[in-house]
């Protein structure tokens, strides 16, 4: 937490730990991230466990008539949400690599993400 021009700026980490589409948590979690981006806080997203599936290329929900949100992950940059951390172990366990992901991310060891997590003022799991 710090202050800039009298405004409080906190470190927020949103944790995405669930697969997309099977439940609404990732979708509504993403809405939470986008709204909070307007508050000029220090925001990061950590993709852990099944959360890494949210970032897979070639997702197409059209046949299910579910509104897709993969494009929104690509647009996060425009909202100044640039700190996207992906857990290397979660990727590897699923037979995935960075090349399978739709956006540029930082692939980190669990211990490194753990250290970042420990510094947060607010952690919200979606």
């Amino acid at each position: 937490m710090r202050e800039e021009d009298g405004e409080i700026i906190k470190d927020f980490m949103y944790v995405m730990r669930r697969a997309p589409h099977g439940t609404i948590y990732t979708y509504e979690g993403l809405e939470m991230v986008l709204i909070s981006a307007a508050f000029d806080q220090d925001i990061s997203i950590a993709f852990i466990d099944d959360g890494v599936y949210s970032l897979l290329k070639d997702q197409d929900t059209e046949d299910l008539q579910i509104k897709g949100f993969v494009k929104t992950f690509k647009a996060l940059d425009g909202y100044d949400v640039e700190k996207l951390y992906v857990d290397r172990q979660s990727l590897e366990e699923r037979g995935l690599s960075e090349d399978d992901l739709i956006v540029d991310v930082e692939v980190l060891e669990s211990a490194e993400i753990g250290k970042l997590m420990a510094k947060q003022d607010v952690v919200i799991h979606n």
Binding site: I8, K10, F12, E31, M32, I35, S36, A38, F39, Q41, D121, V122, I124
Partner: peptide, 14 residues
């Protein structure tokens, strides 16, 4: 939904 971020900023704990 912005209220939630506002709460997280104002409160000591969420």
């Amino acid at each position: 939904l912005g209220q939630l971020t506002d709460i997280a900023i104002r409160a000591d704990r969420l």
